[in-house]
Amino acid sequence: MSTNILTKRIEAARAQGRLALIPFLPGGYPDKKRFWDEIDKLDHSGADVIEIGMPFSDPVADGPVVEHASLKCLEAGVSLAWILSELAARKGRYQAGIVLMGYLNPVLQYGLARFAKDAASAGAHGVILADVPFEESDPIHAAFDPEGLALIPLVGLNTTPERMALYGSKAKGFAYFVSVLGTTGVRASFDTGLPPEVTRGLESAKKAFDVPVALGFGLKRPEQLAGLHGLADAAVFGSALIRHIDGGGDAAGFMQVWK
């Protein structure tokens, strides 16, 4: 099977001697129209991969910033069907790889096979399902693999090398390493230097995964990126972009800071 676009985009950044940048924005945030303008800006401003959140009423892996933004999207009438059809209308428009991130239940109600088909044909390259651990991933792989849609694993500080190897055996696209034991938006315990447990975890992840490893959760300042070179291939920005937009900024300004 050909290399997933997500892997290619991250490897291209590595070839340029930099970390790939992966911003996240909940689908339909801050409103249904402006959202797609912000995605355009992310794409034009150097995002290598863009994560689009699929809002869910009960996001247990997310902190208050992402939860609040997701609920606001749901109130504005955002649905998975809307995200997929709007994305399909823009197919081919983005240089960046596209990842959909969310929880299993909305995907199940949409229909797992139908989702895999529609997401792939809308131009998504991978999916993160925060509440699907390895134990429950077989049916997801069975639906995604034939469509070339990567199921991106989420691992963390408490994931043993044995469990990383399980995820590694099936990973496509990239692997997502969570830098703190907590939810999105939790402040990382490091400023510039990496704490030893994060370094150890990333080293363990690099061994377990053939695909690139992205580090996420808790990135707040550009200085934090410097310590990641050689350990991680990409950095994910979750709540930081939401905060930036809430503070009156836009995606272009946000990317400017991190590039």
Binding site: A61, D131, F134, P153, L154, N158
Partner: peptide, 8 residues
Amino acid sequence: QFVPELLM
């Protein structure tokens, strides 16, 4: 067991 890996 539909939980984030961090809870496994």
